[in-house]
Design a protein around this nucleic acid. Sequence first.
DNA 1: TGTACATCAGTGAACGCGCGTTCACTGATGTAC
DNA 2: TGTACATCAGTGAACGCGCGTTCACTGATGTAC
Lengths: 195, 195
Amino acid sequence: MIRKPANQQHHGNLREALILAGLQILETEGLKALTLRRCAKLAGVSHAAPTHHFEGLPGLKSAIATRGYGIFERLMIEGIEAEDTPRGRVLGMCRGYLRFATEHRALFNLIFVSPRDFPPDEERMAAAASARRVLTQTCAELRHGAGGSSTTEVAVWSLVHGFAKLIEIERVVPGSGDARDVDFDNVFSFLDVRA
Amino acid sequence: MIRKPANQQHHGNLREALILAGLQILETEGLKALTLRRCAKLAGVSHAAPTHHFEGLPGLKSAIATRGYGIFERLMIEGIEAEDTPRGRVLGMCRGYLRFATEHRALFNLIFVSPRDFPPDEERMAAAASARRVLTQTCAELRHGAGGSSTTEVAVWSLVHGFAKLIEIERVVPGSGDARDVDFDNVFSFLDVRA
DNA sequence: TGTACATCAGTGAACGCGCGTTCACTGATGTAC
DNA sequence: TGTACATCAGTGAACGCGCGTTCACTGATGTAC
């Protein structure tokens, strides 16, 4: 965490510090705790300071979401790189997707909202588009059924996104050993996709 | 909407009136607008009145969710009844699921949260279990792959739930005519399930 | 190298908002006899 | 059928909370000359 050096008027990089504070709050306290005042406090600055760097809370959230898309994309790519068949890469990507959703739950919920919930922000939109491209291109290697490549992509996306949400709300609890213990690899095997 | 008759001390059925007010607020203003004070106002009663009927906002939300599960179950059943093959019934159920998600968006988001977000409430849990049973039993007619019936169920559930969320956040916009225009029936055709 | 000055990035007090909750109260309702 | 009384379900004022935002301010930084 970047805090302002004591007894120093200017911070140096308060914008960055506020984004990092926001990320930390998301990880430790969740989406509802993400407020301008909390970020300012965690960055060691007065609560009015963020005004000089962001257009209100939506602006800060948008900047944080930009980082979120980056982490999300990185985890998907990690999952893809371990595999060497088209179908394997899609499954690997899904594993990265689920890792992001479970290990960065609040961030996952921050980035998966309607674009209308964010102010227009080129950086964020570019980061979102980049992550989306990973999904699109990885699914493009698969054979396409009715509706073509975009339907294939949405089929994979729906399956993994839905599974992530079911985990989040505890309808599915992998490793629990009870009735909610369902493994994604088995779920994925229901998807009729081949190279 | 049930309002208190003017100049009358006791309401008659304020509990029911508050639930109906809550449902109306969800439909017209969304989940964030659902507060005790707003419900009280819409029911035509002072903001302190709900105290006598619910254990705070969580209690009221739980009661509203109970109704939500009922509507949800009814729409799924409607979708099922129109079909006469196991696979058709599952697809019909999904159509009902999606209808609920799109026509009752806030209610959909209210009921699909972690059980931990609600106080224990037998009525709500019974309503949730009943709706879940529709899903389970409809999917049970399908052939099961790796992981057995619960995996089959979660595969169907993930697909439809994910699709619903992608619509909600506008990654998918059926009927838009643009790149986001994907049809659920085509997505469903990727699911390798037979009678 | 020094100086004058504009700009920048903070501070801290204050404001208004809607929220849940508490409190003393009051009038209607239900019940015992 | 009346009456006394307990209980119930409201009212409205008040409180404290955290929030975003505004404001006058101030001290540090950067720049022109």
